[in-house]
Design a protein around this nucleic acid. Structure first.
Lengths: 202, 202
DNA sequence: GCACACATGTTGACAATGTCAACATGTGTC
DNA sequence: GACACATGTTGACATTGTCAACATGTGTGC
């Protein structure tokens, strides 16, 4: 038939089209935003027909849910890595916040898929997505508990503390990718970090 | 011709279709989310043809920009009202935060239009939208300056303080309407308020 | 070795949607 | 009272998500 296409990794034409679809979706979203994602073009790019996707994802929203899930996974891993690399402590805490915002700034459209309500209806149907999101959140809870054990953070319920911090950082990330910040995001992040430390310190 | 329709306010069939379009868009979004907003159905609901809209808005994104602008206006007015009703101070500050989150929770889809990146490209073309957003933000800056003059808030640059607080509250609002909060939004808000006070207090 | 079930992929078709061009009409101005 | 202009309509078109029907390759039980 056609060019038989570049075979990804090992086998492609047969093989994991599923992965390829997800990666192509990620690439498209990264470059043109969610609105640029069309099932037809994704298929086209992969040398596969428009509806081939339906054998791997029930829906367009299912594909978006997978994109969101992948985002949470990456985010969780990056945060954990940064935290460990800095050996925890306030330094690790600061680095986690910076890395979080950096992720959003580096992948604004991807981040929007994760939090833009695209998967609201699908989210309730996709427990894996919820789980992945919870996993990323848990990393923050763990970090806070660690800080508490070192006597650095006030002994409030870790869940509440984590919720508060997450909201702050999430807010900065959102405003940043929305272009609503009136100052460089790094400055806002630094300032927020100082105030948060003061707010939750023991 | 047809039923000549219920005339809104004074004159409708002639009169301000512009307003009617905006209000109908608001209603639709409130009930079914942004994705439920279709130009054709809006026209249909108003007993007007699909493309009549184009005499008042250049684009669908222009309509969305108007929706966002209206949101910022309402938000600004509500925050100002609450602040003044409580006579400023920490009480007014708390009330503003609560009112902000309440607005988002009451109109989740509308709030998403304001911050969901739907008007990114349009935003740069619609200076009125930017201005309305800046106006809402200015209310917060003013409040903080007032608190500073009372010696309640540390003498950091008001802009930075406002940015930080806005991000925190915005984050809570976003997570709330995304269903990502693991606790009642009121609890999260209260807790955040305490921590923020500690963080920015003198 | 082979037939059959099943996963995977394709083509055709359809309704919904945003948008443009061409046309119609009512309103106010000199 | 005629003319310019704002406002609204109809026709048409390309794009998109999705379904149904069909094709095909792959592996399993004999």
């Amino acid at each position: 038939m056609q060019s038989m296409a570049r075979k990804r990794a090992n086998r492609y034409h047969h093989g994991d089209l599923s992965r390829a679809l997800l990666q192509e979706a990620l690439r498209t979203i990264q470059r043109g935003g969610v609105e640029a994602l069309t099932l037809r073009r994704v298929g086209e790019k992969l040398g596969v027909s428009r509806t081939a996707l339906y054998r791997h994802f029930s829906d367009k929203s299912a594909l978006l849910a997978a994109v969101a899930r992948e985002g949470f996974r990456t985010l969780r891993l990056q945060l954990l890595e940064v935290w460990q690399k800095h050996g925890g402590g306030w330094e690790g805490f600061d680095a986690m916040g910076a890395a979080y915002v950096q992720f959003a700034v580096d992948h604004p459209s991807h981040y929007r898929v994760m939090f833009g309500g695209y998967v609201d209806a699908a989210g309730l149907r996709d427990p894996e997505l919820m789980q992945e999101g919870a996993g990323a959140f848990q990393g923050l809870v763990d970090a806070i508990q660690s800080l508490q054990q070192q006597g650095l953070v006030r002994p409030d319920p870790p869940l509440q503390l984590a919720q508060h911090i997450w909201a702050s950082v999430h807010g900065i990330a959102m405003l940043a990718i929305d272009g609503q910040l009136k100052q460089p995001v790094a400055d806002v992040g630094r300032f927020a970090n100082e105030r948060i430390r003061t707010g939750i310190g023991v």
